[in-house]
Design a protein around this nucleic acid. Sequence first.
RNA 1: GGUGCCAUCGCCAAGUGGUAAGGCCGCAGCCUGCAAAGCUGCUAUCCCCAGUUCAAAUCUGGGUGGCACCUCCA
Length: 466
Amino acid sequence: MLIFDSVQKKKREFTPLEEGKASLYVCGPTVYDDAHLGHAKSALVFDLLVRVLKANGYDVTYARNITDIDDKIIKKAIEQNKDIKEITEFYTEAFHKEMEAIGVERPDIEPKATESLEAMYELVQKLIDSKHAYKTDDGDVYFDTSSDNKYLSLSHRVQDEEDKVQRVESSSEKKNSADFALWKSVKDNTLTFDSPFGAGRPGWHLECSAMIEKHLAKPHAKFAVDIHGGGADLLFPHHENEAAQTRCATEHALANYWMHNGFVNIDGEKMSKSLGNSFFLKDALKVYDGEVLRFYLLSTHYRSNFNFNEEDLAASKKRLDKIYRLKKRLFGLATNNEKTKFQEKLLSALSDDMNVSLGLALIDEMITHANETLDTAGKHKELKKETISNLYYIEEILGFSVKNPYEYFQYGVDEQTKEKIAELIIQRDEAKKAKDFEASDKLRDEILHYGVSIMDTTQGTFWEKI
RNA sequence: GGUGCCAUCGCCAAGUGGUAAGGCCGCAGCCUGCAAAGCUGCUAUCCCCAGUUCAAAUCUGGGUGGCACCUCCA
């Protein structure tokens, strides 16, 4: 299996720290607002990675944190005059529900910052003891970047000397401008914790390092985890700082492989509050089936920037429809679940740094071939079994077409309408039998009026929501 | 300003030294009472210039045009 390591900037063969096992840590959401399409993309990318690792036979331990200590959370709580916990629990639950809607499986471990404070204290204490961190008169604790000769080795950044001097002058508390807070002294009573370094809050880079030590790190391995992932923007400063803390506080480096997913833009523009174009997942789910969103967001390479627009989304839906139509054609038939050549090729494509585009091309070719054979030799038993097995494989490894095909095509249509359509179809069939095509066409127009399309097959007339 | 990434058919998008996958859209046909669905066929020499090579979309240099990070961010 090949993984593009964004620190070494090349594809590397995946070799786990422990034979047959893979550990993965991904930076999760800060729960102060609804998840947008970018959060969805990141969660989907690593959900797929876990599936591909499992398909390659690895026993995967996947952790994704919930950041529930943050200034933005406090701000929101004050704004809405609510308890901090009320805010974090609300958005955590919303996040879980929305992830479920797009087929993202829950990670094995979902650590919260508020539950990992002891691990954070321990880490900070180690850094102070080893002179990699220092306390200021204000009670803050900073990481001393000049004490780490590997600092910036992750992001390959170069220190800007002039900038450095200027900022040091303006902020006398820090030894170096690049130094970042491990512990921030806070005197108010919003959300503070009594640490060995005084009351305050942890710095935002600290929690990931601490949680990894607590939940995933193997004591004597060269790296704490196999893979560390997150959005492309996190490489600097977040991951750089995480790596520095862990490297200096423990005897191992943080991660063997670093993976970063590309960004989601909306109609060519970056999503941002100031542009007013943040696209929340919950809003997208009102209009689109979660699975269509999953298919669309995963359809291009995870490292590329993704430009979200409705035309491309519609094209993705059509592509997913084709999988479901084939599933519908074979609905209810048994399978032998045998490994096929197609499955091998699909796994091989996905195992090459998750080449989904190539995988989708394989799927489309498989579908065309199956439909072609089914058209010309409808009783081809072996092919039917193989195809069903292939469809199950697509479900398992990509999470596409997991629903009942009939339900999928009638998504969002209420029961009353369904009954009405069924009734009209019966009437039309009768008119057709009587060769009264004028009447049957009229009835079809009436059916189409409900925003559905109908198709006559040898098994009867079916309808789909357009 | 610093650092880095990208540029392939109308649109989305693989391929990264051996002669351009796949999907959407479009056109023609088969099937159909007509449709829909399905199937078949057709549609690019890879931003520009120069170079390396028997061979380049793929490597090198120079342009041009996008984008990201450097501050909170998936």
